[in-house]
Simulated scan of single mutants.
Amino acid sequence: MCEKINQVNSWLGSVFGDQPVPQFEVNTRTVDVLYQLARSSEARCSDTALLTEDVRQKASEYQADGAHLQDVLLQGVGLSCASLSKPAADYLTALVDNAMVLGVRDTSLGSFMPAMNNLTNELLEAEKSNRRLERELKALRKRLGATLVLRSTLQEDINRTVKAQAAEGAKAEERLLNMDFVTAKAKELSNRRERAEAQLVSRNMDKSVTHQAVVQLSEEVTTLRQEIIPLKKKLEPYMDLSPSPSLAQVKIEEAKRELAALDSQFEMKVDFK
C-alpha cells in the first residue's frame, strides 16, 4: 500500500509539475484507481518515447539517404539544386510533394504505381459510396416530402377536430344549461302540481271532474258512438218495409226503444262532459 502511494505521489508530481497536487481522499479505492492511471500513463509515455525514437531514427536514415543521393547526383551526374533550371526545380518539388502526399518511401515508379492504384481504388469506393448516399438522400427526401404532406394533413385534421370539439363543447354546455332549466322547471311544475292536489284534497273536489275522468268519459262516448253505428245499419232494412206487418212493427218499436235509450245515454254523457 505504501509503495503504491509513493508511486502515485511521484506520478502526480510529474504530471502537475510546478503546480500543487490537488487534495484527495486517501483510501484503498482512490489509491488503486490512481495507481492504475499512473501505470497506464507510464506505459503510454514509454510507447510514445519508443515511437518518437523510431521516427527520429527514420528521419536520420532519410537524411542520410538524401545526402547520399545528393552526393551521387553531384559527383556522378554533376547536378545540384543550384544548377537546376526553374522548371526542373518546380518539377522536382512537385514530385517530392506528390511523394509526400502519396506517402511513398521514394519517388520511383514502383512506389508511385501502387500508391496511384490505391488512390484510384479509394476514389472508386468514394464514388460508389457517394452514389449510394445520393440514392439514400433521394429516398430520404421523398420520405420527407411524404412525411411533410402527412404532417400537413394531420395538422388540418387536428385543427378540424379542435374546432369540432369546441362546437360540440358549446352544444354540450348549452344542453346542460337547457337540462338544468328543464329540470328546474319540472321541479317547479311538480311542486305546483303537488300544491294544487293538496288544495283540491282540502276542498273535497269530486274526482269525477278531473282530467282523467273526463278523458275516460270521452272514451266511453266514443265507444257508444261506435256501438250505435251497427244498430243504425241494422235498422236500415226495416225502414223500407211497409208498416202493416205486426211483427215488423214490434221489431221497429224495440229498435226505436233501444236507440232512444242509447241516445239518451249518449246525451247524458255528452252533457256531463
Rank of each mutant, 00 (worst) to 15 (best):
N9Q: 10
T222M: 01
V221W: 02
A89M: 15
S244D: 15
E267C: 11
E258H: 04
D271H: 06
Q7N: 10
L84S: 06
E219I: 06
E174Y: 05
A164H: 06
L247C: 04
S14L: 08
D97M: 14
D206F: 01
T210A: 07
E42A: 13
S111R: 03
L84P: 07
E219G: 09
A198Y: 04
E174P: 00
R203H: 06
D97H: 05
I5T: 10
L92E: 13
A260P: 00
K233I: 01
V96N: 15
S41D: 12
E220L: 03
A59M: 14
L123G: 01
L34I: 00
K171P: 01
I252E: 05
V149Y: 06
R257D: 05
C2H: 08
K4P: 00
S40Y: 10
G13C: 08
A166E: 11
L200G: 04
N121A: 08
L189T: 10
Q19P: 02
Q155P: 03
L154A: 13
E194D: 12
S246D: 14
Q70I: 14
K269M: 12
N9W: 05
A99M: 11
L241T: 10
R56H: 05
Q63D: 13
E61V: 11
K232W: 00
K138V: 05
L140R: 09
K58G: 04
A213F: 02
A196R: 13
L137V: 08
L92R: 10
N191S: 07
L69H: 15
P20L: 12
T153N: 14
S246M: 12
F16I: 01
Q199P: 00
D47E: 15
T210V: 00
Q155I: 07
N6E: 13
